[in-house]
């Protein structure tokens, strides 16, 4: 018998079908009066930054005010009109070439108020490595696309064909040395989320 059949047989022999049905996921989940404010408060506590922006112009101005941005030599933006992109992500075949990217500017699909997370996918993104290898990450999220909690988040998500998606909440961090929080473990040293008003 193959290992697969062996394991399945052993599981079937041992499992007891006494459990009730799967629970529905309806409940009186937490709601927030101001989703944007809640999101922005939480993202600050996890080491990120949230900026409300009226226009692309606003975003570009805010970017220029970030010292690390003005001194950045490699910037990869996949959003037309935002950021002075000089790395064309669609032309990069080997993700290792992204090693020295300073700033990545990517769209986030929606945000979650309860935990400051932004849903980002590799749709239209040839090398998802850029989200993690860049020194600084900027996500641009439509301000109207904030859900209160994770249950609402998964109501929006459909996993059909192959693809990758990630909830990102703050910059890369570690507390593995004596519980001291250090921002910038392996990935981005900062996360800025722009909430656009359209």
């Amino acid at each position: 018998m193959s290992s697969r059949d062996d394991i399945l047989a052993s599981v079937r022999r041992n499992a007891k079908t006494v459990a009730p049905d799967l629970p529905d996921l309806e409940a009186d989940w937490i709601q927030y009066a101001d989703l944007q404010q809640q999101f922005s408060e939480v993202i600050e506590t996890v080491g990120g930054r949230c900026v409300a922006a009226e226009s692309d112009h606003d975003i570009n101005n805010a970017l220029k005010a970030i010292p690390e941005y003005s001194s950045a030599s490699k910037i990869a933006s996949t959003i037309p009109g935002i950021g002075e992109s000089n790395v064309s992500l669609s032309e990069i075949d080997d993700p290792h070439e992204l090693e020295d990217v300073d700033f990545a500017i990517l769209p986030g699909e929606f945000a979650v108020a309860e935990n400051g997370a932004v849903w980002v996918t590799d749709k239209d993104l040839k090398q998802r490595a850029v989200m993690f290898i860049t020194q600084h990450l900027v996500l641009v999220v439509p301000g109207g696309e904030i859900v209160p909690h994770m249950h609402a988040a998964y109501e929006r998500l459909h996993f059909g064909p192959a693809g990758f998606g990630v909830f990102i909440s703050g910059p890369s961090k570690t507390a593995d040395i004596e519980q001291s929080l250090v921002i910038g473990a392996h990935g981005p040293r900062s996360l800025t989320v722009f909430l656009t008003s359209n």
Binding site: E114, G116, F159, V166, S169, P171, S172
Partner: peptide, 8 residues
Amino acid sequence: PITTYSSH
């Protein structure tokens, strides 16, 4: 509130 990365 959630880990920094929850990768699917």
